[in-house]
Structures are given as C-alpha cells and as structure tokens.
Design a protein around this nucleic acid. Structure first.
Lengths: 164, 164
DNA sequence: GTCAATCATTTGTGGTGCACAAACGAATTG
DNA sequence: CAATTCGTTTGTGCACCACAAATGATTGAC
C-alpha cells in the first residue's frame, strides 16, 4: 500500500514563506528590493531572456501587474526591455548586469537571515530544500516558442555571465 | 571548504507558496476555508491548545489580526476559546472536533491540487519536502509557559484525537 | 488593402492579508 | 491602589493581487 502523507505541505509552505518574509525583509530593504522584485529577478536569471507573457506566466502574475513591476525594475536599470526582432509587438525582457549584481548582493545579504530562518535544518538539508523548491517551481514554468527562440540566440551571449 | 548555496531559498519559497495558493484555492473554497484559516488550524493541531499570544507568535501575525481570525473560526465552531483557570485575562484556544474534521477534509481536498503542484517531485521527495518544511517552521514556534502548562493537561484528552 | 487577432499598456476597481497605532475594559501583580 | 498584562475594538495605510475595459502598434489571413 502506498504511503501518502495525510498532512499537506500547503499550509506549511504558506507559513514558512510568511516567516521567511518577516526574517528577510530588513535585508531586502537594505539592498533596495521588494519581495516581488526579488522573485522576478530570480526567475529571470533562471529562465533567461523572456517575453512579457512568458515571464508573467513564470511568476504567475497578471500581465497588467507585470507591467508595473517591470517599470520599476527597468527604471532602476535592473532589467531591459527590447523589441523582438521577428515580432515588434513583443518585448523581450532580460536581466542587466546591474540586475545580476543586485540579485547576487541580495542573496549575500539574505544569507544570514536565511540561516536564522532555517536554523532547524543542517547544511545538507538546506541544500535539499533549495533543490526541492527549485524543481517544484521549475515544473511550472511555461515557455512560449518565441521566447525559446530568443533564448537560443541569447545563450551564447549569456554564457560568460553566470554569477557563479 | 564548506559549500554554501549561492542562491537563497527565499525567492523560491515565496514563489512556490504563491503557485501553491493558486493551485489550492479552489479546493480550499470547496471546504470553506481561507488560506490563513488553514494555517491557523494546522498550527493549532500541531501545537495543541494555546494562548492567543502564543498562537499569534506561532502564526506570526499581529494579535489584533488574530482576534478577527479567531472570531471567524469560532463562529464556525472550528475552534473554542476558554478562560485560563489560573489567569482569567488569558484565553486558551483549542481546535474543536469539528475543526479537526474540517482540517482533515481540507487536506483530503488539497491532495490532488498538491499532487499537481509538486508533480516535478516523486513521492519520496514530497515527503522529504513536508518534513523539511515542518522542521523549519517548528524552529520558530514560541511557547509561553502558561500555554505549555495547559498543554500538559490537554494532552491526555487529545491523545485519542489524532486524525491518523 | 482591410480586418481580426495579438502584445503590451493604461486606467480603474475592489479584495486579502498585513503592520502598526491608540484606546479601552477586565484581570493580575506588586 | 497603581502599574502591568491580555484581549478587544477601531482605524489607517501598504504590498500584492485579480479582473475589467479600452487603447495603439503590430502581425497575419484573406
């Protein structure tokens, strides 16, 4: 008989995300980012340049709310919008170098807050958690073919840009 | 040299919690609970009867917001408030049988939505995720001694109440 | 060349959840 | 008896969000 957990992760996810927000908000403020901006920059780094449609889908927000989010990030030079060459209706959004730096700085700033947040877990377990979260969220990214096309040509440029 | 993840879990936690909410809201609505209520009932089950102060701390919400939350849960018979015998200023909040049933029903209803949410993980990984989330959140529960005292006497009554 | 459809934008409304503040009454403590 | 604690009430404002309608630029089908 298959063992399935009778208790669901939903409430705990919600709860931990909320505790996380409380722990990390001061660090994020120091770096000058808000939670939603951090998520957007993180997903943009992971997915690579994307259309607004695919980015909205990846972040799971309404495209009208995405416009405002990108306006803020663009006005700070953290992302850039440019017209797709093959369809000028579309914008391709990409992380700028300033954005990548800011994201790295944010993660450095968050490290201590996150160590506190996850103090009940050891180092190995923290890495397991990150990996599981990454794979769970990766299962929900939707790529439009146009964005995939752009990514193919952007990959070469981005190859030397890995923040590791 | 210790390897520490350069990327933090904060953004992914936030993101997965948000996707989770989108996936599970229909199921929760069917059961007649809101996300915040689910979290409160879940933590109440895990911590046992608690003062409002310790519950607010466990859920990480302002005590003035907790009042409204408990009013809703109490009016539906899902929790009960009673005065602490040794300090009538305090209320002890506990899950009722109706509340425990509703929570179990909610988890059953959420099972499919959660399977979709976590389709990128296998069964073992889902259980690992649950365990890590539980231990990460457990590290943040603050118990007042009065609540602990109440729990000692409530434990015997609750022993036959485990929904497993 | 025209028209329908698409992409992004703008403007707007209303909602949830939340932090924070001030004030209050009941109850406890010293 | 006064200070403190616990919970409550009322209030404000913010971040984030879903949803709707309308618009202009652009593309694609015919």
């Amino acid at each position: 008989m298959a063992i399935t957990p009778i208790h669901s992760s939903t409430a705990l996810l919600d709860h931990l995300a909320r505790i996380s927000r409380a722990h990390t908000e001061a660090s994020l403020e120091q770096v000058g980012l808000r939670p939603r901006q951090l998520v957007a920059l993180t997903l943009l780094r992971e997915t690579g340049p994307a259309t607004q449609q695919s980015l909205a889908s990846a972040i799971s927000i309404d495209r009208t709310n995405l416009v405002g989010l990108l306006n803020e990030l663009e006005s700070e030079g953290l992302v850039a919008r440019r017209r797709a060459e093959d369809d000028r209706r579309r914008h391709i959004v990409e992380l700028t170098e300033a954005g990548a730096s800011k994201l790295t700085a944010a993660e450095v700033a968050l490290a201590r807050a996150e160590a506190e947040l996850l103090h009940g877990l050891d180092e190995q377990e923290r890495q397991t958690l990150y990996s599981l979260l990454q794979r769970a969220t990766a299962g929900h990214v939707v790529d439009c073919t146009a964005a995939m096309h752009e990514r193919a040509s952007a990959c070469v440029e981005a190859a030397g840009d890995d923040p590791c």
